[in-house]
Design a protein around this nucleic acid. Structure first.
Lengths: 113, 113
DNA sequence: CGGGATCCGTCTTGATACTG
DNA sequence: CAGTATCAAGACGGATCCCG
């Protein structure tokens, strides 16, 4: 995933940002209220630590996520979606709705709000 | 892209199907009315022939696309979205809407219907 | 010539081990 | 706990080859 802008198409350019198998899973978890690295790791999909770190960095770079460092412990920051990041909710909703309707066996884990 | 189902989450499972940088671009073109291999190749993003063939096969396997062989020329088939494939339209719409709203410089090429 | 398949070098991904 | 380092496996991209 290079992230390079390939065209002026809103679909292709958005996919440059979130078009991979992990980014939207991370966004999903953040939308569901998770904030810490370890929490994000716990999801049943089993994302690897380096992939999670990479995706969080990319999302930060795209200003979809911000990292909030802790004042007490230096290595205990948390991650939150920016407003821009939260605006991905309709995209996630559409993906989730499609999955629920067309992939038997899938179900909602907990309220996405 | 392995395509293996990793969880029961509708988001993660949907991403197993369409979570990469090319699949939704192909679906976009099919929704826009393109039907032939060569047409799909012409898009400004510049997909490689092997990648396009691979994505079409995967989409066929997932029953999102069907290949319709020509009666006259045997090597002149066309591809069309199935009903199931067309049902991805809201997902594509959400992605496109997000891109138009948040990625400056992106614009619609031609009516998506 | 159109519609792919195959080969191959490069870049990305992901599992695991390791560190502050 | 929160990542980084390492390294094998796989995906990408493009050039070419092949077949009707």
């Amino acid at each position: 995933m290079t992230g390079s802008r390939r065209s002026s198409c809103p679909v292709a350019c958005t996919l440059d940002l979130i078009g991979d198998r992990w980014t939207l899973v991370v966004v999903r978890d953040l939308l569901f209220g998770k904030t810490r690295f370890a929490e994000l790791l716990e999801s049943p999909e089993g994302i690897a630590t380096n992939i999670l770190a990479d995706r969080l960095h990319r999302l930060e770079e795209a200003e979809l996520v911000e990292r909030i460092p802790s004042e007490t412990h230096r290595a205990r920051g948390s991650y939150r979606l920016t407003l821009r990041g939260e605006s991905l909710r309709p995209v996630l909703k559409a993906v989730m709705t499609w999955g629920l309707a067309h992939l038997p066996g899938t179900r909602m884990p907990s309220p996405p709000r």
